[in-house]
Design a binder for these strands. Structure first.
Lengths: 253, 253
DNA sequence: CAATTTTCATTTGTCAGACATTTAAAAGTC
DNA sequence: GACTTTTAAATGTCTGACAAATGAAAATTG
């Protein structure tokens, strides 16, 4: 592990990169202990605060964890699904909110990816997945449900569908797409009417999965996408009209 | 922005969380300047090094950037696609390599997501995208190409296909899936025979996109997935046989 | 001898203060 | 007015120190 003395980047950034590369290349195995901060400071010929800043950078990416005390130190972290999800969601959420992604584009991407799971989910769904989906549908149909609870249940339903595909990598990738869209989705205040429609479509999806009929799941997802986009457009157009502006469907962020 | 004095977490982690929440909630707008390190140290009643560690954590997630000099400081970063890609790829690569994801599972996820792009790509591909795909196919057919160059060209080809869908969110999501698999893919040393087959399938994909025929693209992608998995299996089985072990197709990491 | 307690060295977490370097605005100069 | 110099503010880095946690080894005790 060496740093380039001619680079004009921060020392802590260079050191973080050197250690990160060592981890990615497999030079450092997970659960392996890094040298102590004092030793690293010696190795890189910098002070301990600089080394610490580098280690905090790595900790922010869940690449290492630290432990105090004798025989403590920094250990290479085994990146768990949970941590990877969280990073994925944070990054995706910020990307969507900061780059003026239109609702249409985000929605299209989300449903395109979800449809990719449909054939696998139809083929592999367990009784457990199906039960989760049915339970969420039942919850969504209850009249007193708050908008927040409805949205949360919506996410849980789609989550179950994705998990039913039985591919952890797909689940991980979709988590970013689905959960990152939650803030955008929350902007759409669902009316009783639209909830009915959505629940009906969810039922068709669950029925399709029940019958192991991929085509039915896919078709229902397509209709759900079309309905969601239409709903968003009408709401945005209405808001634009209220403000006396030209109705627009993008730039919601 | 406040921190919980009763929490037993690191102060720098708490401070980072407080600022991160402020950014995500929109309390801090992008390009807005944070208070100086000294001011933050005062606000949170900690020392400057502790504040700096918190800021480095945020910098590692591309949430802020820092600028030296008068009127410099830490600014809320507008997360660019480039930065989001990089984070996505780093996280995905580590997740795949550290959790013993089998080649089959990763491959299935990757092609499932890529197939999701096929209909959009067929409908929207520009002449430019098509030209890129053709150029990469031409490169891949050249005999003297190294394995590394072939793999890079392979990634570029699929990248062009995904970009042809004209949805930046899809491109972003796919970047993680496709590029993170590069290390796994590189394990498969392509023989001349398999290169021929792959190039032929790439040509069918390009032809399908050319004709705006989504079904053709999808079918070719399905065959490419089947071929890739079969190839990987045979190679892994061979290696297992050499080592005198039971042939296995998973746990490649 | 075995179990428990105490000591202790190691390592991270935090702090204070200092100096170097960069940067852009403000002041000065022609 | 255009250019140069000064200057203040901010980050980057270093030194040195102490606090707190932690597990191992040593000492104590039954």
């Amino acid at each position: 592990m060496k740093i380039d003395p001619h680079s004009d980047a921060d020392l802590s950034a260079q050191i973080a990169k050197a250690i990160r590369d060592a981890i990615i290349s497999g030079e450092l195995i997970f659960d392996e202990r890094l040298p102590s901060e004092a030793e690293l400071a010696d190795q890189f010929a910098v002070s301990r605060p600089t080394v610490r800043e580098a280690l905090k950078r790595l900790a922010a990416q869940s690449l290492i964890r630290t432990q105090r005390g004798a025989f403590g130190g920094a250990f290479v972290n085994r990146l768990s699904y949970r941590e990877a999800y969280n990073q994925q969601i944070t990054t995706s959420t910020l990307l969507l909110s900061m780059n003026g992604i239109s609702f249409d584009v985000a929605c299209e991407a989300r449903f395109a990816m979800e449809r990719a799971c449909a054939p696998l989910a139809a083929a592999r769904r367990s009784a457990d997945h199906l039960a989760t989906m049915r339970a969420e549908i039942h919850r969504q149909a209850q009249p007193g449900l708050t908008d927040e609870a409805f949205c949360a249940s919506d996410v849980a339903f789609h989550r179950a569908l994705v998990d039913a595909a039985g591919n952890p990598v797909l689940s991980y990738q979709l988590a970013g797409a689905v959960e990152a869209m939650q803030p955008l989705m929350n902007m759409i205040t669902f009316t009783a009417r639209s909830r009915e429609q959505i629940v009906a479509l969810h039922e068709r999806i669950a029925d399709g999965a029940d019958a192991r009929d991929a085509a039915r799941v896919t078709t229902a997802l397509e209709e759900l996408e079309a309905y969601t986009i239409a709903l968003a457009r009408s709401i945005l157009a209405e808001r634009g009209a209220i403000r006396g502006e030209t109705p627009q469907t993008n730039g919601v962020a």
